[in-house]
Computed example of a mutant assay.
Amino acid sequence: MRDNTPRALAKVPALTFGFWVIKVLATTLGETGGDTVSMSLGLGYAVGTVIFMAVFLLAVAAQIRTSRFRPALYWLTVIASTTVGTTLADFADRSLGIGYTGGSTLLLGLLLATLFTWHRTLGSIDIGTVASPRAEGFYWLTIMCSQTLGTALGDWTADSAGMGYLGAAAVFGGVLLLVAAAWHWSPISRGTLFWTAFVLTRPLGAVVGDFLDKPLDHGGLAVSRYGASVVLLVAIGVCVAVFPQRAAARPH
């Protein structure tokens, strides 16, 4: 008999088309929102990181305390992770002078170390197992590392590699299509493919966000960061309401 009780469900969403649409919108908002606080408001990367980190930690604490998957709380936590990822990566790359290449390499190492520790500790990085405080702790730490890495990787591709915002968006979009194809037609583990896609949606959102709000002479559209952030936030709210939101099934 199929188990439909809450105990059979994880506290994170199932991987649907809507999940990925909202994820890309959230990562784009993370870029424009992070830049709004650190640049438009003039608070700087360090102060912006402290503010968004506090919001992120509070959201994670609320997420862990809840007994089931709550879409609004989940996506609020994801948005908080994208904004802190933006300011934290910019602080490391620019304020500390590590640079995009050094920052991306360092953050990739942190992400891989987190995933390795998670797997060694709990035996699986499958999102369906995210139902206990320990698993949730690893899950959100991995997400924060992936969001920060994605910001640095997007900046490196657009700036250091000289591809520009649209060129970088095309590259990350193309690689995501390859990951989607591998999901359907390759034997690669679902956990590996999920986290690969999760990481890659961040630089995609980052370069799209930069394309929207950067000055015209820097290859952007010079759209108001405030306006872009509000529009993206409304779009996320509409998508959460329109797309079916259900918890991921726990593996049996």
Results as ranks from 00 to 15, higher is better:
93 D>V: 14
216 L>D: 08
30 G>L: 03
154 G>W: 10
180 A>H: 12
238 V>C: 02
94 R>G: 08
40 S>I: 08
47 V>R: 08
24 V>Y: 05
216 L>P: 01
236 I>Y: 02
88 L>T: 14
165 Y>A: 07
84 V>P: 04
205 G>M: 07
142 T>W: 06
84 V>T: 14
82 T>P: 06
56 F>C: 11
222 A>P: 00
229 S>P: 10
41 L>S: 00
165 Y>P: 08
98 I>F: 15
54 A>T: 15
107 L>E: 11
113 A>C: 05
83 T>M: 15
178 L>R: 10
135 A>G: 10
226 Y>R: 11
115 L>D: 04
49 T>Y: 06
81 S>W: 01
211 F>W: 15
138 F>S: 00
218 H>G: 00
22 I>R: 02
198 F>C: 04
150 G>Q: 08
165 Y>F: 15
61 A>Y: 12
15 L>R: 14
153 L>S: 13
102 G>H: 10
90 D>E: 11
199 V>L: 15
47 V>N: 03
235 A>W: 05
173 G>R: 09
68 R>E: 13
215 P>L: 02
121 T>S: 15
62 A>W: 11
180 A>D: 13
25 L>S: 06
146 S>N: 12
219 G>P: 12
17 F>V: 15
121 T>K: 11
235 A>F: 03
74 Y>G: 05
125 I>Y: 03
169 A>K: 01
60 V>L: 02
196 T>A: 14
178 L>G: 14
99 G>K: 10
136 E>F: 05
41 L>Q: 02
172 F>G: 12
170 A>L: 15
102 G>N: 06
194 F>W: 06
110 L>R: 01
92 A>H: 00
15 L>C: 09
239 C>D: 02
96 L>V: 06
124 S>T: 15
28 T>F: 05
155 D>S: 14
199 V>I: 14
73 L>Y: 09
23 K>Q: 11
185 W>I: 08
209 G>E: 00
98 I>N: 01
9 L>A: 14
72 A>I: 01
172 F>Q: 07
